[in-house]
Design a protein around this nucleic acid. Sequence first.
DNA 1: TTCTCAATCGAACACTTGTTCTGAGTCATT
DNA 2: AATGACTCAGAACAAGTGTTCGATTGAGAA
Lengths: 212, 212
Amino acid sequence: MTQLDTHGARIIAFIERYWQTHQRSPSYEEIGAAAGLVSKDHVSRDLKKLKEQGYLSFTPGVSRSIVLLKNPRSRPRGGDGTIPLPVVGVLHSSEPEPVADKVPPLDWLTVTRELVDDQDDVVVLKVKGDSMIDALVNDGDLVLLKKKHDVQNGEMVAVWHKPTRQMSLKYYHRENGHVRLQPANPKLDSVNVKPNEVEIHGQVLAIVRKAS
Amino acid sequence: MTQLDTHGARIIAFIERYWQTHQRSPSYEEIGAAAGLVSKDHVSRDLKKLKEQGYLSFTPGVSRSIVLLKNPRSRPRGGDGTIPLPVVGVLHSSEPEPVADKVPPLDWLTVTRELVDDQDDVVVLKVKGDSMIDALVNDGDLVLLKKKHDVQNGEMVAVWHKPTRQMSLKYYHRENGHVRLQPANPKLDSVNVKPNEVEIHGQVLAIVRKAS
DNA sequence: TTCTCAATCGAACACTTGTTCTGAGTCATT
DNA sequence: AATGACTCAGAACAAGTGTTCGATTGAGAA
């Protein structure tokens, strides 16, 4: 049993997963990162072998042209692909760390591409309690969050305010010298805080409330 | 009829065809050649518009990442367990008739079966204005509504209160002799009304807020 | 041990591909 | 006719991406 078999299996599994999420082929670099191959040359050689063995096909010189052949679960189709997102935890106003990615997901929420654009690091958090109502979010609501720490002005983010030890969802505006946090409820006022008093935990992409 | 419409239709048709043949997105150059656009800049601009209009999605900076979302010519097919719902109008607190089903839909929202069970008479309404904040719903939110006039206790419904001429989203409780309408915001109080003062317009199945 | 071959890495390279800028043309309005 | 908004072409640019090559490592055979 050569080492390639392990690699090949990992590569195919990753391509399948990547297809399901992004509806496109990964690049050689992405494959390498996922399968533990440092060099793109290594990826290239392994892909050639897998192509000869009939597991996949690709067009030389064309980027992101890998298509799985033998694997029945891949869905290389143009339209209606859905994106499974992991429900990784609970969002509570007094919880500092909403994004726990080491634990296995509690659940999965599948959404269409219309709701969440194709991106990595998107997770779902379930809101606990009614303490985040000024974000127009209530107990049981699902927040689709892109994990990142740098945000653009005007984006809605999950922020942890260190002095008050409060997590909240606010529109983020960096203004000269301070950060303005604006509630989703337009009838409430913004608050200004010092930049080093807040930790950005992610960008809010969407909010879903399932009634009943 | 602007020129873009023609271009947009040609571009979408080509991408669809290209996907069927190659199982991948075409490049900007290939799109231009097929749709009669000489410049890649032209293709780029048209694609941005089509993305804003919701016909397709792509990831900036990533080659061949275009994915078609809906077909402009027809009702989306809704394969893979997805359900296309028509966006039929606007929900405003002072509008008596939220559900206008005679007009052609403004748009389509495709959701997964996790969010809304497959059923008839489910439509989408877009919230206009911030007058429905006590339902934790704000301008731009999408309300998935099942059109019906009889509801069970505890369901969230769209109700029209005739005396005040106000539409709102409330939990419905039929109690001895009167109807109790409970806001989604638990910090607000219920109101009691006479049964003949309210018109049930439908049951709220879900609420979706797309950020940014 | 020494040789050989395959696996692997790291880097350089060249092609592919998306983005941006300038200016020309078109059309409607003033 | 002058203006402005818009579409479009052409080219330059920058980033993404596949390909290739030399060097290193490690395992197994001689």
